[in-house]
């Protein structure tokens, strides 16, 4: 393939990865929690879109409008159910890793039990169509998914910049104690952030449902990729997640094209190792305070 074509496919992929990573990095920024179940929730979102399409005949872009609010509420409920138990613990960081890892296993187990391990994907008419623009083709599904990601991320950005709750979330990300000092109810903000993170996971799941195939264990591969790109971008930085996603998606497209598709996932892990060796805080990350 020519360079332009590879670049376009990489950029389209990057847009979707950015959305997949945004919830993960937001949660880390606000709560210092690495949610290892994030990709598992993306898979749940994909199943949601699958059944909305198969059973109700809803296009994924319609299902998006149902899945996001449902995931938002689910996220707030889960936070209230799980986190108060470990909040005061001196080992909070380690506990959250174990807890979200356990959550990922439970979700995978339940999905496999009820829906089996069959490879699935949603198949709307545009899933296999492409726009031909001179020498390059642009797959419609990827284009729509990527554009939707951009719109959602811009919405998230505007929300964080312009609303009172958005200010409180950014304040908590920048300095948790300072946020408490000025009267931000940090637990409420954490709950809302968890809801937003989940809504983003649900949205990402809906979009990947028609551009990738998925099955219950697919989340292991995704969480590995997502962790690599938010480490590159800087944990807790939304800008970093977007830049990391686009850079690595384009890089992996080139690796896939020039060296071979089996090597594409290596791009992410190579980037992870290099980042941790050269600049552990990533491109836009802050030094992690203890």
């Amino acid at each position: 393939m020519n360079e332009l074509q590879v670049l376009i496919l990489g950029l389209l992929l990057g847009g979707v990865y950015a959305l997949m990573a945004s919830g993960l990095t937001l949660l880390f920024g606000v709560m210092r929690v690495v949610n290892l179940a994030h990709a598992a929730f993306i898979v749940v979102g994909a199943y949601g879109a699958y059944f909305a399409f198969e059973l109700l005949g809803l296009d994924p872009f319609v299902a998006l409008g149902l899945i996001m609010p449902a995931f938002f509420l689910l996220g707030m409920g889960l936070y209230r159910l799980l986190f108060p138990r470990i909040e005061g613990s001196p080992r909070f960081g380690e506990m959250t890793v174990l807890m979200t890892f356990g959550l990922a296993l439970i979700i995978e187990g339940l999905l496999a039990f009820y829906f089996t391990g069959i490879f699935r994907s949603v198949d709307p008419p545009y899933a296999t169509q492409a726009f031909i623009l001179g020498p390059v083709f642009v797959p419609r599904a990827q284009l729509y998914a990527s554009l939707t990601s951009v719109v959602l991320l811009m919405g998230l950005w505007a929300f964080l910049r312009m609303t009172r709750t958005g200010y409180a979330i950014r304040a908590t990300m920048q300095n948790r104690v300072a946020a408490q000092v000025v009267g931000v109810n940090v637990r409420r903000i954490s709950t809302v952030s968890f809801g937003i993170g989940m809504a983003l996971a649900g949205a990402a799941g809906t979009l990947v449902s028609f551009i990738f195939t998925f099955f219950p264990a697919r989340h292991w591969q995704w969480i590995a990729i997502l962790l690599a790109l938010i480490v590159l971008g800087g944990m807790g930085s939304l800008k970093g997640a977007v830049v990391g996603a686009v850079v690595l998606a384009v890089a992996s497209s080139f690796v896939s094209d020039r060296i071979g598709p089996t090597w594409a996932p290596m791009t992410f892990f190579a980037a992870l190792f290099v980042t941790l060796m050269v600049r552990p805080r990533g491109l836009f990350g802050k030094e992690i305070d203890r």
Partner: peptide, 22 residues
């Protein structure tokens, strides 16, 4: 802390606790 602040007790911590990126 936000309820106590509402009652009229304010705190300036040692590290000044500003929002560095704002």
């Amino acid at each position: 802390p936000d309820e106590i602040l509402q009652k009229g007790i304010c705190f300036v911590p040692q590290d000044r606790s500003l929002f560095p990126e704002m």
